[in-house]
Design a protein around this nucleic acid. Sequence first.
DNA 1: ATTACATATGCGACATTTAATATATATTAA
DNA 2: TTAATATATATTAAATGTCGCATATGTAAT
Lengths: 107, 107
Amino acid sequence: MDVSEPILAEAVKIYKVLSNVNRIKILYFLENNEADVSSIVDHVQLAQPIVSHQLAILFRYQLVTRSKRGKHVYYCLDDPHILEMVNAMLGHVAHEIKHAPHPGRSI
Amino acid sequence: MDVSEPILAEAVKIYKVLSNVNRIKILYFLENNEADVSSIVDHVQLAQPIVSHQLAILFRYQLVTRSKRGKHVYYCLDDPHILEMVNAMLGHVAHEIKHAPHPGRSI
DNA sequence: ATTACATATGCGACATTTAATATATATTAA
DNA sequence: TTAATATATATTAAATGTCGCATATGTAAT
């Protein structure tokens, strides 16, 4: 594959977005249903401002869409393809972790 | 997919590893051939200590293997599957960026 | 209008990441 | 043993990310 700089830079940004447990959890919660902020808060067990903050990031990078109806804002996966890729990664990791878990140290 | 915490945490770590342009460039350079540090340095146009540092991260997370022969250390993709996933992401981004590029602001 | 509710935003403390410089280690050659 | 080459590591500063708290905004009901 030819790796043009702008595309590469963009992909890296998306990887950054995905490199946070809370954001992935939110994405998974949105896998099958749209949901408003309150129910996301209930599900992921985080303070509301944190959820709103992460949602704003997911929105800015177009991983989710949002629509306001009344007092509630409903979020929805923008592109299920992203979640397929996350699934592939989780599958990969699940397989790999059995055989040779690497040290937990951070980057 | 059921998202167990340890798997999720692991996946997030790998996303962190992938969320750096230099590391991705290195991975791509290793796509077809193994290479020693010097040739990687030549190719990605970065100072040698930076390349060594990024290689150490890629190695710690088992994205590459290394073998020392003489004075040289040769690095090699550990699992081409990772690169397939990166390819999928680049494809996704290439498609998406045409239609609706998002603001360049950082997370 | 005022209140209550749902969500977003701003700010600060803290941790992490990047990349530069300098230095250390290991291997080979002379 | 000394010098040269290849690579790795340590240290640091700047940038960025995380998350908690406080507060602002917007909407609806009374």
